[in-house]
Design a protein around this nucleic acid. Structure first.
Lengths: 346, 346
DNA sequence: TATAAAAATGATACCGGTATCATTTTTATA
DNA sequence: TATAAAAATGATACCGGTATCATTTTTATA
């Protein structure tokens, strides 16, 4: 039962169908100007021979590859994995495969390296994840090299043409609303890294929404973290030792929120009775700790799917004329145990 | 400063170097029978033109692709991401790129789908992660289709030829030794899924080591989980309500151990004073919860690197003759806050 | 119905490498 | 030094598709 039957080629198909191989090629590529009868006949033959075109040959002849690249330097494995899954959700059914390419944001010749990667594999398109995606000139360079390029960015940051946005504004608005609804007025905020677009957007949106709801976020309640667990610990220590103590802390990502929870535990501060904590990202473990973490799910997989849809459309050269595509993904607030109505003030 | 200079081809190199393109090809592929002087001359020319061969053309002509595949159906994103990173550590410097291919273990025609994936892209080799890797006939089928294949498996399970092993035996031995050293004799064990090789190996090795150290693991202290958080919660409830209560629980993976920790917290059982908990995997959050989790790090990235080394060697056709390669990766026990010396008995 | 224009199809070169086998050059042997 | 064997190199076909442009067929118009 060895299935080592030789793969059918375009020549086999054209011979059996009684047409030229160029016609078969037209049908494979959905070119116009093929009679319906011819198309049907050839498609039947393709099915009979179980033919599928050789991507390498196709690529060599047409200077394409039917490969997409995923470029990232992201410490958050689950983010990358989920995104990757979303991309594959769409692109595999479209005949594209995905090549993953982690790289180093601090690398001296990142652009050169990426260009080489792209040209070596003749990638049809790539998706750049944050924080690499913040580098607009990098994306420009890549576009210039003839490779389509979708960047993942927070909502406010850029024109939506080659961008898929996570609507962080919406996410932090929900958070601010929740905290105010629960009666919190003394709120601490842990800011993300200075060069992070999402960090900035989360800050701006959070503060503005609070203000709209009549709550101020004073400077001494804002501390700067690095999106890491350790920085979360450090920031929490600062916030929780200042008097009066805040009754709630919003950390700009889950990683730092976990640091807050740990620090509170060490300081015997009860969550959520004495302190509400909110994160952002809904990492896999956010629901599996005690107390489980109230946070925002970015719907990363959906973002990946959207990015793939846009990218494949671009590669097919049909991006512009079609109806404008969805490009912003709404995050979802997820309430868990780490938030509660204010009981005391300090 | 647009760098749209046309990519140099093998013809450019051969012309400039004054040799035939077949000779250039020989040098690219490290073929024997090339004079040193010729090689040097051509290599200089390659450098001057910044030439690198087109993988598609190469693949089309030689029926290879210089692509490796990573096939998995693994719920643990960080495991996959780390492994992926390890593979790339090696294979990128060797001129190979990585195509990721998540798939569904329960899919009816998994084998067929994988074979199509491989033949479409003419993958040179693939790595299969657990639990898919347990399916020996799948691997055989793939080998038969002409694609090299490395499986990741627990140590005891198979001949090391096309296998990279995680030495779970070593890991659980360390765990048993730690628990006994801390004075535990009333130990609960949460078994992994029935069809999981690692689950079985962890159980067998753990029980045997305990026995060697004079501690028995009675049947009623063994409960069956599914490597999921929820099953960990359920198993913990069973173990912690039976009298006498165990003073320690080893859950076969971190996910379930987190369930134990949560359950203990809900039952007001203090960790580690009243209960020691150990997991397996060292997931990213194991160190970031309270109490932080004692567990075993599998050195997944190193396993990925090893798998890539073996796979690339196989693809080059040099797997057999060389010195036998390392094929078993030793895990590392990591002691954290969730384990302590026995204080009470129940 | 004849003819022009448009649509459908095909012949052939080509993408950039490697494989095969022939030829040339070098080295070893008589 | 002549000759045979081995090593190095090259000419050409080929991998399996697409692009270009020519040719054939169909449709629209006079």
């Amino acid at each position: 039962m060895i299935k080592k039957e030789k793969k059918a080629t375009i020549n086999d198909v054209s011979r059996l169908a009684g047409v030229s191989k160029k016609t078969v090629s037209r049908i494979i590529n959905n070119s116009p100007n093929v009679r319906a009868a011819t198309r049907e006949k050839v498609e039947k033959t393709i099915k009979i021979l179980n033919y599928s075109p050789d991507p390498q040959a196709r690529g060599l002849a047409s200077q394409r590859s039917f490969l997409l690249g995923l470029v990232y330097d992201n410490p958050n494995a689950s983010y990358v994995a989920e995104f990757q899954q979303g991309v594959l959700d769409h692109c595999r059914s479209q005949g594209y495969e995905l090549v993953v390419h982690p790289c180093d944001n601090k690398s001296v010749n990142l652009a050169g390296e990426l260009i080489r990667f792209i040209s070596r594999l003749k990638l049809d398109g790539i998706v750049i994840l944050p924080p690499l995606s913040a580098n607009a000139s990098l994306a420009e360079l890549i576009e210039k090299s003839g490779c389509h390029c979708i960047r993942i960015l927070p909502a406010a940051s850029e024109a939506p043409a080659q961008v898929v946005q996570s609507n962080d504004l919406h996410g932090v608005r929900k958070i601010a609303q929740l905290l105010v609804k629960l009666g919190h007025t003394e709120i601490g905020f842990i800011h993300g890294p200075k060069d992070s677009l999402s960090a900035k957007e989360r800050y701006v949106g959070f503060e503005k929404t609070l203000l709209d709801l009549g709550v101020t976020l004073p400077q001494q309640r804002i501390v700067w973290g690095e999106y890491t667990f350790d920085s979360g610990v450090a920031c929490a220590e600062v916030l929780l030792t200042k008097q009066p103590r805040p009754t709630a802390i919003f950390a700009s990502n889950d990683e730092m929120a976990l640091g807050v929870i740990l620090t509170a535990a060490n300081m015997k501060i009860k969550i959520p009775d004495e302190l509400s904590v909110i994160g952002y990202d809904d990492e896999p473990h956010a629901s599996k700790i005690f107390p489980s973490l109230t946070t925002v799910n970015q719907n990363v997989r959906e973002m990946g799917r959207l990015a793939a849809i846009k990218l494949v459309a671009l590669c097919r050269g049909s991006g512009e004329e079609d109806e404008p595509m969805e490009h912003s993904v709404m995050p979802t607030l997820i309430e868990r145990q780490s938030t509660a109505r204010v009981k005391f003030k300090f």
